[in-house]
């Protein structure tokens, strides 16, 4: 007995852990994460903002003389900047709704209980694990005007041959097809999870109430899914505004500037033309635009959630 008590007394630290050492422990746990965030996120952003207001000094590879809004004015006067923004908008306006509708549609269709479901779901993940540059290269081969398999198939239908990367509209279509191939599975995955989480008994009630497949879809499933659809749209939007790699690998912005999305243009300006200050200004403008639009989307999706 006495031995036990002695032990427990000895185990207790001589001093009560004070406030300062408690704080130290807390901060030391957070330090690695903070360091990572500062070096990987905060520093590059502030560096970009800094050089966007300066003349870029190639020698020191940093901000030179402060020039105020000069870079911004130059960018806004540059018609190529607006062209690229327009190209990006076209891509977003077509690709996002297409992917969300396709993703939820496929999820709804494969949601029924059937034996092949697991295999199909697994197959759907493949496009997501392929590196975007590889996907771009792969599709470049598939869509090749001369020996690509897509034109070969379309030939059976009496279509083509189509010059996928030579025609401006078709090139944009090709980019959207590749992007959709790559990202729809992600939405299918989210949608499948959302469908599985829906209350079963509401669908059973609809069955008893006499709702057919179509009215179950529109009167029950879609309204129940609206919050998830809105959230998925925002997530996909955040991914899509960063669109770069697939364009880089498939069309490199061409033909002409038909698929020259804003991120590719910024990259070109910086690392090909070495106009770092101007491209930094563009990056900041795009960042602000993205933040504003994301804010609007988030607000809208919250409104939708209240509605349903």
């Amino acid at each position: 007995m006495s031995n036990d008590t002695g032990k427990s007394v000895r185990q207790r630290p001589a001093l009560h852990p004070g406030r300062s050492s408690d704080l130290l422990v807390r901060w030391s746990f957070m330090f690695p994460a903070i360091l990572l965030l500062v070096t990987m996120l905060a520093y590059p952003i502030f560096y970009t903002i800094d050089i966007s207001f300066s003349r870029f000094d190639i020698a020191s590879f940093g901000a030179g003389e402060w020039v105020g809004w000069e870079n911004y004015i130059e960018v806004i006067d540059d018609y190529r900047f607006w062209e690229s923004l327009k190209v990006t908008m076209i891509y977003l306006v077509i690709a996002l709704p297409l992917q969300v509708v396709l993703g939820f549609g496929i999820a709804y269709l494969i949601n029924a209980e059937w034996s092949g479901r697991g295999v199909i779901r697994a197959l759907f993940i493949i496009p997501m694990v392929v590196a975007p540059v590889v996907a771009g290269g792969m599709w470049r081969m598939i869509l090749d005007p001369l020996w690509g398999i897509m034109n070969y198939w379309l030939g059976f239908l009496g279509i083509g041959p189509l010059d996928w990367f030579g025609d401006p509209n078709l090139a944009m279509a090709a980019i959207i097809i590749i992007d959709t191939w790559r990202w729809t599975p992600f939405i299918v995955l989210i949608a499948t999870a959302a469908l599985l989480a829906l209350p079963k008994d509401v669908f059973e009630a609809a069955k008893i109430d006499g709702a057919n497949w179509w009215s179950t879809l529109w009167s029950v499933a879609v309204p129940l899914l609206v919050p998830v659809i809105a959230a998925t749209f925002v997530i996909r939007w955040l991914g899509a505004v960063k669109m770069f790699d697939i364009v880089l690998a498939a069309t490199y912005g061409g033909p002409g500037k038909a698929t020259n999305v804003i991120n590719l243009f910024i990259y070109e300006e910086a690392f090909r033309s070495l106009r770092f200050a101007e491209s930094a200004a563009m990056a900041v403008i795009v960042l602000v635009l993205t933040m504003v639009l994301t804010g609007i989307f988030l607000r809208a999706s919250r409104k939708l959630e209240e509605l349903f």
């Binding site: 209350p199 008994d201 509401v202 059973e204 009630a205 609809a206 009167s219 029950v220 309204p223 129940l224 609206v226 509605l307 349903f308």
Partner: peptide, 8 residues
Amino acid sequence: QNYALYPH
């Protein structure tokens, strides 16, 4: 049991 009302 869980009412199964259409929430929207």
